[in-house]
Design a protein around this nucleic acid. Structure first.
Lengths: 141, 141
DNA sequence: ATCTAAGCGTTAGATGTCAAACGATTAGAC
DNA sequence: GTCTAATCGTTTGACATCTAACGCTTAGAT
């Protein structure tokens, strides 16, 4: 009889969902969310990217990004204007309020990461990252 | 200067999304989806559970389960009837077509798991599962 | 017996995501 | 120069998911 092997993917997605949910709750406590946080950090880390690159960096589709940018613009977190040099492109810039939210979320995100890593050694973390990379690689083939 | 630590949660959720997406695509190729597969396997492995337990096993909310069961019932995969002994309870049972879909999806799911595990040693798998469990534990505290 | 509380499932409304179609703009071919 | 193809972002329509509110049923208290 072959040994029973619980599917590796199930534990992966279940855990990821648990972690994502908790992260989202933590960000919500200071008025944010996971996609908003990822969008803010992507805007901050690369100045002057267009929306296509932004969506790529965040890991969502262009249509979904449009959705979030609409809400964030309505909420006064950022502005969009056409790039005079290429009027297909929207230049996205944070407002002061967007900057403030970024800093609040960063604190929450850093605290969350510390909490999440509790009890993991350097070796475990390295091994974990290696395996995750391998899994993604197995899918791409 | 402290060493830069990329957040462990980000790689986790990104990889999980990639894997989930590929799994869903594989199931879709034979007429299924991830939630449908999880519902089918849960029904098969435990006979006579109510919907609340079913939702718990699948890892979704009751309202979401209702949504899927509606679609699956419309599609002829299962039947729902009131339990005469407790008329609050819906007894969910697979039809023959539901059984057939279950077997098709099982083959696809097993093949996917094999593909996903490629290149992972027993030690790596064990370590991976241990770390995922630890992460979930860190969140629950 | 009745009344209250708890349990089960559904419905309604919101959010985040995607794919496909589209409108405007630019680049390249000729 | 014009025409065609590619690029950028938006809109539309769909789906999975959640929370909150609700309706029916059962269990428990008195």
């Amino acid at each position: 009889m072959p040994p029973f092997r619980p599917p590796i993917g199930l534990l992966l997605t279940t855990t990821a969902r648990t972690v994502s949910r908790a992260f989202d709750d933590a960000l919500a406590s200071v008025g944010g969310s996971a996609p908003v946080w990822q969008i803010l950090i992507s805007i901050k880390s690369r100045q002057l990217g267009n929306q296509r690159e932004l969506a790529e960096a965040v890991g969502i589709q262009g249509a979904t990004l449009t959705h979030h940018l609409n809400a964030m613009e309505s909420g006064g977190l950022l502005t969009r204007r056409r790039d005079p040099a290429n009027r297909r492109v929207h230049v996205v810039e944070l407002t002061e309020e967007g900057e403030r939210l970024f800093h609040r979320l960063r604190e929450v995100a850093m605290a969350f990461d510390t909490r999440l890593r509790a009890g993991l050694s350097e070796e475990q973390t390295a091994s974990f990252e290696e395996i995750l990379t391998q899994l993604a690689q197995n899918i791409r083939d």
